[in-house]
Amino acid sequence: MDSNYEDQDGPGWWIMALLGISMVLGLVMLLMVGCQPLQPALRSDPLPFEEVPPIEAGQTLMITADGTYRVVLDFPEDPPENQELEVTGIVYDSEGPIGDDVEVYFDAGMPHHGHGLAIDVETRRAPAGRFVTPGVRFHMKGRWLLTCDVTRGAHLERARAWIMVN
């Protein structure tokens, strides 16, 4: 599915490139100023995501803003209005599907109308990086924002995507 999300937002490859450059520069600068107590935990490797399969029909790819996680969402091409559906997906980090200790929370809302889902949903983790969110109901037509929060320990990162309910 060609999601129409965040086209204008585009924190894509160039952010990753800038990130890489800034990481190297940052490390060099820290060494130069002799700032030994401050050890930045910057990533030094690119994020390969080799295990993420090609996106197929009926799937949507969501990427967290700094590219730490990729979420392959099983999502219908034409999501139904006012009918319950079960949203499932797999979350990957650079090494493969996330571990069972990582929490995932899927949600949706219509920011332009100032509301979320009419009925709150809960997300359940499953093995091999999978998650399941039953009871998702888009109760009106229009542009919906999907969000997927991935929480590992103290840290949460968000991926988002826009979809249309016709």
Partner: peptide
Amino acid sequence: AWVTALVRAVDLDQ
């Protein structure tokens, strides 16, 4: 609405 996107959060207590 929502041109402002959450990137990340951290629980300082944890």
